[in-house]
Design a protein around this nucleic acid. Sequence first.
DNA 1: TTCACATTGATAAATATTTCACAATAAAAA
DNA 2: TTTTTATTGTGAAATATTTATCAATGTGAA
Lengths: 213, 213
Amino acid sequence: MFIKNLPHKTVERLSQYRRALLMILSKEKTHVFSHEIAQMLHITPVQVRRDLMLIGYSGNLRKGYDIKELIELIGKIIDSERGQRVAVVGLGNLGKAIISYFKGKRSKLSIIAAFDINPEKINRVYDGVACHHISQMTEIIKQNNISIGIIAVPSEYAPETAETLVLAGIKGLLNFTPKPLNVPPFVYLEEYDMITSLEKVAFFAKKNDERFK
Amino acid sequence: MFIKNLPHKTVERLSQYRRALLMILSKEKTHVFSHEIAQMLHITPVQVRRDLMLIGYSGNLRKGYDIKELIELIGKIIDSERGQRVAVVGLGNLGKAIISYFKGKRSKLSIIAAFDINPEKINRVYDGVACHHISQMTEIIKQNNISIGIIAVPSEYAPETAETLVLAGIKGLLNFTPKPLNVPPFVYLEEYDMITSLEKVAFFAKKNDERFK
DNA sequence: TTCACATTGATAAATATTTCACAATAAAAA
DNA sequence: TTTTTATTGTGAAATATTTATCAATGTGAA
C-alpha cells in the first residue's frame, strides 16, 4: 500500500498510534475514538483524525475507529511487505540498549546482526543477536539482505561506518552519533542526536522556569 | 541573554553549530562562512544565516563569522548562566550509554547523579557518576539543585519516575522510553522514541528504494 | 417519528519553518 | 580609481504542519 507524500510527522505518529493501539487491543474494547488516541499520546483529536484521513481510514460515526483494522492498515502502510532486516554497528552500551529495546517487539523489523571491533564480543550472542567482526560487515549484509543500519559506534568512526554500510547496499540509516553524516540521496538518513536533545531540554526548561516564576 | 521565541528547530541547530565550531576552533582558522557551517551539518547556508540573524549575530562581509565570538554568543543564549545539573534515572545499558556520551563534553550541563533500583549498582560510580537508590531521588535532587531528569528506566516505570521527578522540582525531562508521559505545563518534556525513529527510517528507506528503483 | 447528541471528515485558517532572490557592502583586482 | 567578486542580511514567497470550525451523520432517547 502506498500513499503519496505522507508527511514525516504523520509517519512518526502512525508508528506511535500502532503501539498505543496494540496496548489497548488486549482488553475487550474493539473500537476507539479519536480523542482517546489523542489522550494517550498527548496530542489533539483533530491531529489524530487528520492523520487517519491522510491514510484514507474511515471510522464509525458512533463507535469510533476499529482498533484491529486500524492496526492492520497502519502496518500495510509503514511496514514493508516482506519485512526489513536491521544491523547494529557498535555493540557498546548504546548498541546493547537498542537491541534490548527492540527485543520482543513483534514487528516486520528484525535486528539480525551486530558488528563490533572488540575481539571479546565477536561470535557472542547478545539478546538473541550474534555479533560479528566489522570486517565481515559487507558480506553479512549482502548475504542476509539487510536493508537498515543503526550506527552506534564512537563518533570518530561514524563516517567510515556509514560509507561501508552504504556500499554494502543499505537503504536506510539511523545515526546515533553526534557526527553529521553524508549519504547519497537514495539512502534515507535519520540523525538522532542525544546531546542536542539534552541541550534543547535545558534551554526550554530554563525558559519555562523564567516564564512561570 | 534572552531572545523572544526562538524556534525549536533553531535551538537544536544552535547546539549543533556550537559543537561543529568547537571542532574547527582548534585549527588556525578564526573565521567561518555560512556555507562552511552549512556543509558540516548538511543544511543550506541560508538556514545558517537565518538562524544567526535570529540570535542577532552579525558576520563580517569578507571574512565570515568570528568562530570564538559565535561560540560564546550561542553559549549565552542556550546555556543557563549558573549551569544546570542533570540526573539519569535507570542505569541499564541506555543510562550508561548516555553517561558515556556526555563524559568529557565540557558544558554548562553536568550529569551529577544516577539512580537505579538494583542493589548491585547502588553506591558504585559509573564514569564519574555515583549511583543511588531511587528511594533517595527526591532528597538528592533537592539537595543538589538538579533541574533536569533523563528517564532511561524500563517503560512500565516511566510514569511513576516522571511523577517523582516532577514532584522533586525538576524543570525539564528527557524521556527515552516509548511511553508518552504527562507533565504539568511548567515542566518541559522532550520525548525521544527510538522505536518510532527506526520505524520511520524503515518507512522512508522503503519509499526511497521504490523511487530510485 | 422527531429531537438531541457525540462524533467523524474535511475545508479553511493559522502557525511554523525553509527557501528564494536580491540589495548592500567591503575587499581585492584591474 | 573603477570594476569585479564573494559574502552577508533580510523581505517575501513557498512549503510544511497544526488547529479551528462546522456540516453531515447515525444512534438512542423522548
